[in-house]
Amino acid sequence: MKSYFKIFDFISEQKLRDSLILDYKEVLTCLKRKAYKAAVVLSGGIVEAILINRALYLPNDKKNKIEKIYLELTGKKEQIEKMELSPLIRTLSSLGVITSPQAGRSDVLRDYRNLIHPYKKGGRPTKSDAQNVKKLLDDLIKEFQVGILEINDESNVRLFLAHSAYKEKREKPEYGEILKLFYAMNGRVDFEDFIKLSIFKNKPNPSKSLISNLTYLKSQGLCNFDTNSWQGYPIRRYESWVMDETIKKLVGEYLKNIKI
């Protein structure tokens, strides 16, 4: 990572830029002194500040859309600087303000930051946790520096399937069942076939749960919907989902290695 005096040049507000430089320097100090919890908290705060700054400097019409989508997601009418991080990430991603992989990285950093809540995660951040957070933070900063994400679906999928920072996410049982079915069906699966999986069939709202899980895997570059399969009646959704051949091979290797 280049000098931390220059890494936040993409931040337009001087006061915030100076503050983030100090925060980043403190992250390095915390890692050196084994203050891993503090490093995780500061890293999460840096990401939150970057995303809020990006949203605040958008044109007014786009900021209005952010507030509208946030209201739809949370039921709360909030100013951008007071928005909670998780729905803000989803909102910015849906509007194309940040890319899907950037949203994924931000979401993982948010999950790590939740390690500070002992009743949610049951433990303090470890050295490995803090190092993973630092790596994710550096990757995200680099992406914002160049203005575009220099990563394609294949490399993003490799990251999701192998990086320790995504371990908790990718081991979610629903994702495993979806990936297995994609691989078994040669990369093309109808919505009704997904619904037949017992892990979804037994949920209170199978369709809603399935769509949520498919959408997340889509954000990681693992699959996409078939645009020709849109069905507006009686239920508005895409009826078929597809997985690229190259991605399917990576998924096959992943499933083989974990012996699912």
Rank of each mutant, 00 (worst) to 15 (best):
M1W: 00
M1F: 04
F5Y: 05
K6D: 05
I7Y: 04
E13M: 06
K15P: 01
R17D: 00
R17F: 00
R17T: 00
I21F: 02
Y24I: 04
L31N: 11
K37G: 15
A38V: 13
A39R: 12
V41L: 15
V41S: 09
I46Y: 01
I46G: 02
I50L: 05
I50M: 10
L51M: 10
I52N: 00
N53Y: 05
R54L: 14
R54A: 10
I66K: 02
I69M: 09
Y70R: 05
Y70L: 01
Y70Q: 03
Y70H: 01
L73N: 08
L73A: 12
K76N: 13
K76G: 13
E78T: 02
E81K: 11
K82N: 11
S86N: 12
R90Q: 11
L92K: 02
L92N: 00
S94L: 14
G96A: 14
T99Y: 15
Q102Y: 08
G104E: 09
G104P: 08
R105A: 05
R110D: 02
D111A: 09
Y112L: 15
L115N: 00
H117M: 08
Y119R: 10
K120Y: 11
K121E: 09
G123A: 15
A130V: 07
N132K: 07
V133N: 01
K135C: 01
L137S: 05
L137A: 04
I141S: 00
E143D: 14
G147D: 13
I148N: 04
L149V: 12
N152F: 13
V157W: 02
R158W: 01
H163I: 08
S164G: 07
A165P: 02
K167G: 10
E168K: 08
P173L: 03
P173M: 02
Y175N: 06
K180G: 07
F182K: 04
A184I: 13
V189Q: 00
V189N: 05
D190I: 15
F191N: 11
K196W: 13
S198P: 08
S198T: 14
F200N: 04
N205Y: 10
N205M: 11
N205P: 04
S207A: 11
N213E: 12
Y216N: 06
Q220P: 09
L222Q: 00
L222C: 06
N224F: 14
F225R: 14
T227S: 15
N228T: 06
S229G: 03
S229E: 07
Q231W: 10
Q231M: 09
P234H: 12
P234D: 12
E239S: 15
V242N: 01
M243A: 10
E245S: 07
I247K: 01
G252D: 07
I258T: 07
K259P: 07
